[in-house]
Amino acid sequence: MIRSLGHSTLTIVFELGEISTFGWGAIRGFFGQRKRLSKLTQAIHETGLRCFPIVATVGLFTGLVMGLQLYYTLVKFGAESALGAAVSLSLIRELGPVLTALMIVGQSGSAMASELGIQRNDEQIDALQTMSVDPLGFLVGPRLVASLVCFPILTAIFDLIGIFGGYLSGSVLLNVDSGVYWNRVYETVAWADVQGGYIKAAIFGVITMTICAYRGYNTHRKASYPGVRGVSESSTRAVVWSSVSVLVADYLITSFLI
């Protein structure tokens, strides 16, 4: 049992090391590429625009639900005027970065893992190597750098729409004074809260996109099956690992930020 535990620990440490080396190699490779701005713009367009509708929709409904739930909790203590503060702080500090990251992983991360897996199976990655093009820098680098931009921006959009959703359910439906709601949001939210949310978002971005890219890129080594089943397994594992890593990283970062 101890041997098995030791083996599992070593495997995890080795895997974490490989993922870190992979991510660093991709970011370093990106800065060795030509036409970096154009590649980065395209990656931001693909990740950002593709994820905007889902992030906006989930943000709105999260805010609506939070408005309802928190109203009925706060009203028991006669503190419904604190609704704006409760909704905005929960979203900006925790739910915004976490849910946005999970949405982007589901939408863009899984697509990236599948795309890279197919490119691996189709020998397109080998083809880049034979052309003296760094496949990591060319295929993965722009997406990792783009995640540093997209995750915080999409998180900000999620937060804003979520706070507006809280206003809709709290003030428009349940008659909390709108002036009180917005005043509490304005008074309670400090720059440190916003900054902490963005730091989380950027870290989640790099972690999740690196894991997704790593799984797809190494489909031939990591999947239990070759071909299409391997790609399917890689994208599934990419989403699962990334989602779990978001929650683990959230706890660790929050511990440091608080």
Binding site: E123, D126, A127, Q129, T130, M131, S132
Partner: peptide
């Protein structure tokens, strides 16, 4: 290394998959 493409000189290898 597989290829080394520089201006004015051709690559050493190419691969048709």
């Amino acid at each position: 290394r597989t290829v080394n493409v520089t201006q004015g000189s051709g690559a050493d290898f190419s691969y048709m998959f």
